[in-house]
Amino acid sequence: MTVLLLVLAVCATLLAGVVLAAVLDRALPELAGTMTRQRIETEAPDRMNRDLAPAFYLALAAEGLSVVPFAPGLALIDSPVGVVIWGACEALTIIVVFLHGWSPNAPFPLIGAYRYAAIGLPVMLPSMFVLIAAALPAESLSLVAIVDSQREIWNVLRQPLGLPLFLVVALALTLRGPMDYADAADIAGGTSAEDSGAGRTLWQVARLAMLVSVSAVAATVFLGGPLGPVLPGPVWLWLKTAVLMAVLIWLGNRVARTTPSRMLTILWVVLLPLSFADLIISGVLAL
C-alpha cells in the first residue's frame, strides 16, 4: 500500500513538476506548439537511440526521484546507497545526451554531443565530492539517513559550498543556460538541431523532468528535504523543490554561457578544488 502511494507520489511529482517548470520557463505553449507538427527523419539516423534517448532521460529523472524520501524515513527505494544510485543517474545522463546528439547522423548534433561529454566529466567530479561531503555527517550514503542528519541544522548552512556547487551540476544535467553545452545557440540547438514534432517535445519534457528530479535531490541533500514545522513532509519537499526549480530557471535565463574550452578550465581549476575544500572541511567537522 505504502509502495503504491510512493509510486503515485513520484509520478505525480514529476508530472506536476514538469508543468510547473514549463510555466516558470514560459515554455508551456511552445511545447504544445511543437507537438502539432510532423516529425522529419534525417538521413540514415540511428532510429533506436533516437527514440530511446528521451525515454532514457525521462527514466533517469524518475529513478533519481525514486530514492528521494517524501517523508522522514519514507522513500520509494530506501537504499543504503541512495547517493550512489543518484550518481549513476548523473553519469548516465551524459551517455543519454551523447546518444541524442549521435542518433540524427548530422554534424551540429554530433558537435553538441562531444562537447557535452567533454564538459560532463569534470562536472560529475564536484558533484560526487559535494554529495559525499553531505553524506559524512550522516555516516551513511542513504538519502533517508542524510535527511535525518539534518534535524538540527541543514547541510546548506553546515556546508555552505555544497549547494552552489550542486546547482552548477544541476544546470549541466538539465542542459540549461550557462551549462547548456549540448544544445547551444552557436551550433543551431546542438543535439536538438534535427529534432522536430513530438520527438522535440519529448526531449524538452525530459529536460524539465530532470529539472524536477535534480531539484528534489538538492532539496533533500542540502535543505532537509521533508523536514519542517506544521506542514506534512511531502509538502515541505515539494515547496523546497519548487523554490530550487525557480532558482535554476532564473540562473539559466540570466547567467551568460562562456566558451566550452574556458568552462573546462574553470571546472578543473576552480570548481573541482572548491569541491575538494568542501569535502575536507566537512570531513574535519564530522570527525
Binding site: 522529419i40 543551431a188 540547438g189 536538438s192 538541431a193 522536430s196
Partner: peptide
C-alpha cells in the same frame, strides 16, 4: 527558431 526543424 534556431533550426528549420523547430519552425513552422
Amino acid at each position: 527558431a534556431s533550426t528549420p526543424r523547430d519552425a513552422s
